[in-house]
Amino acid sequence: MERSIFMKSIAAPLGLILFLTSIGLAISFAFPQRSKAAVVKSSAAFSLFEQRVKKPSSLSLAQATLVNRIDEMTLAEANLAVLHLENALKAYLPTAIKRMNTPAIQQDIKDIYTPGMSMVLARSKVKQSQTRVVLQDLTAMDYKLVLGGGRFYPIIQYKSFKVFKPYVSKDLQAYIELMATESEQPSAVNGTLLINWYKVIERAMAYEDFLSTYKSSNRTIAIKEAYNVAKEYVFNGTQNSPLFDKITQVMSEEAAIAYENTLSEAGPEQIEASPLLIQLEEFLMLLEKNGDKKTQAVKDFLKSI
């Protein structure tokens, strides 16, 4: 396959992997230490939220408190509250998945499910009371219903976090946008890409930009994990959507077109400022010298990045 055939074409932003790899709760809070006096003077809204967010049974009330009263909090309180809410939802997620993952509940949902169905709509249509109770609880916590690998499970619905953006710091605003994009359209599920190659590189660039812009953000570690996954997709694809054909070892023509167009649109200045784009440019040049195939030289390059 000659590079010349990779002509510019028109085509069109954690996947589920993002959420599953970040379920862990090893998160530290990167905020300035507050004095004892400041702690005493915490707003009533923040105190009430903190009281409610600590228990799964009152998690939905904590969310309601934050939605309705975040404007009564200071910036530091609002930041901390949003982070605590996300942590609580992550902490409960394994339990939520386990509650939904029974044969009876799975079948009950399957009987009424249509693509894209919301948790609240599924709750209203299922026939078994046990299923209805589980979905009601998860709906109250604002989880999202997704289907992958023939199984139904909940994920955090980051789109609902957008209501908090006017009240939190710039890095958390950017973080919420990145996570909402991934939760609304996961990059991949069960080893299959669900987005095109333009968006594969676009999302990796978005994560890289966050890491470059917000070096001391509380969510740097989470975005770094997402970036590493996205970068793996860029240079290797996934198990069921590989970048190189498993038999011929030739690179996907669609990916090559998307990557070349991305570099062309970025231009020298943006490429120079992005380690990812520099590597991508070197990658394409090496492939051109190797007939667009995953030769040993290409494998060695991939190991080095």
Rank of each mutant, 00 (worst) to 15 (best):
H84Q: 15
T74R: 03
A64S: 14
N101R: 06
M251G: 02
P268F: 06
I176A: 00
V168P: 00
T74M: 05
N101Y: 10
T74K: 05
V163I: 13
R99A: 15
L14E: 12
P242Y: 13
I195R: 01
I70G: 04
T192M: 11
A44S: 12
A174W: 01
D245Y: 00
L135Q: 09
K90C: 10
R34S: 12
S4Q: 10
I109T: 02
E72L: 08
I201E: 15
N101F: 11
K41R: 14
K224C: 10
K125P: 03
A38Y: 09
K165P: 03
A140V: 05
S35V: 12
P32Q: 05
A11K: 01
T181N: 02
Q270Y: 11
E50H: 12
A91T: 10
Q51W: 13
G267F: 08
K144W: 09
E282F: 05
S118N: 04
F49R: 00
S9Y: 01
A226N: 11
D245I: 07
L243I: 08
T181E: 08
L280Y: 08
F29M: 14
L85R: 04
G267Y: 12
K41L: 14
Q270M: 10
K303S: 11
V40H: 04
G24V: 07
L263D: 08
A91V: 07
A256S: 03
S217H: 00
I278F: 03
V168Q: 00
T139Q: 10
L284Q: 02
S160E: 14
V200Q: 02
T131C: 07
A273N: 09
V133S: 09
D137L: 05
N196V: 11
Y175T: 01
Q173F: 01
A37S: 15
V229I: 08
T65Q: 15
F244N: 01
A174S: 05
M1A: 06
S183D: 09
A38G: 01
L59K: 02
R3E: 10
D300T: 12
A78W: 10
V200H: 03
E177M: 00
A26T: 13
A44C: 02
T262G: 14
D71T: 12
M179V: 00
E265M: 07
N196W: 06
M251Y: 07
A226C: 08
N190L: 12
V229F: 06
A88G: 09
A44L: 08
L14Y: 10
A26F: 03
R151M: 10
K125E: 11
L121M: 09
